[in-house]
């Protein structure tokens, strides 16, 4: 079952990326990045999902509007390593529903990517408003997240849905949420980042050194 879903998702993601890549080439933006050709594999699975809430907000620099963040999801995704090899040119933007995700690690070794996904809180449901059952997770057009605004994000979402990219199955989402546990309440962005670094050491142990870079002693 997982394999057939994976194939469908792969095909759909490839279609989105291919279309986006064509437009991007026509615009003369850049030569094809290595990641765009490999990006057909996209996001293979949702491994971990934990909601967070902060006492102090921070700015989400992965969108042009830089919205203020007080809550959201900490996710661990199973991704195709070749899609997430860091490079200096445009990289495929990772989307979760109608939001851009901030990558904490690279994931090109383990295939496991720890990300922060900002969201408002849905007080009725008692979790982030960004519903993982409703929103797909995919790699979109290679571009700079800091230049991506709500309009562009909406266009990406439409293209993804048109390409048949669907949210993960409920069972997978539930499983990931169970792994994540309940809300974690943190003071601020620094604590969030350091907590995310501990997830990196767990899920992407090959990036232990990167995590240590995030966990240096805090000056007091």
């Amino acid at each position: 079952m997982r394999n057939s879903r994976w194939l469908l998702t792969s095909f759909a993601a490839f279609a989105v990326l291919a279309a986006a890549g064509t437009a991007w080439m026509k615009a003369g933006a850049t030569e094809p990045a290595a990641s765009s050709t490999a990006a057909a594999s996209g996001v293979r699975g949702l491994l971990f999902a934990q909601p967070f809430v902060l006492d102090q907000s921070y700015s989400h620099t992965w969108r042009a509007e830089q919205p203020s963040v007080r809550a959201g999801w900490l996710l661990v995704l199973d991704v195709a390593p070749e899609v997430v090899v860091p490079q200096q040119g445009y990289e495929p933007v990772l989307f979760v529903g109608d939001q851009t995700a901030e990558r904490i690690n690279h994931g090109d070794g383990s295939g496991h990517l720890v990300v922060i996904v900002p969201s408002e809180l849905d007080h009725e449901r008692g979790e982030p408003a960004l519903d993982l059952l409703a929103g797909p997770i995919w790699f979109g057009t290679p571009r700079l997240p800091e230049q991506l605004d709500a309009k562009g994000l909406a266009e990406e979402l439409v293209a993804a849905r048109r390409a048949g990219i669907k949210p993960f199955a409920a069972a997978k989402v539930v499983e990931a949420k169970q792994r994540g546990g309940g809300f974690i309440a943190l003071k601020d962005r620094t604590e969030l980042e350091r907590y995310a670094a501990t997830l990196v050491t767990t899920w992407a142990p090959d990036e232990y050194d990167l995590a240590q870079g995030l966990l240096q002693p805090l000056l007091k």
Partner: peptide, 29 residues
């Protein structure tokens, strides 16, 4: 630490803020 993944505009901010941070907080180091 440089915030490069969103793009170079974000990276420029971390260059600026880290320079200021060091100058402001050198007594802590």
């Amino acid at each position: 630490q440089n915030n490069t993944q969103p793009g170079p505009e974000s990276a420029s901010v971390t260059t600026l803020t880290n320079t200021d941070y060091l100058l402001t907080n050198q007594h802590l180091i």
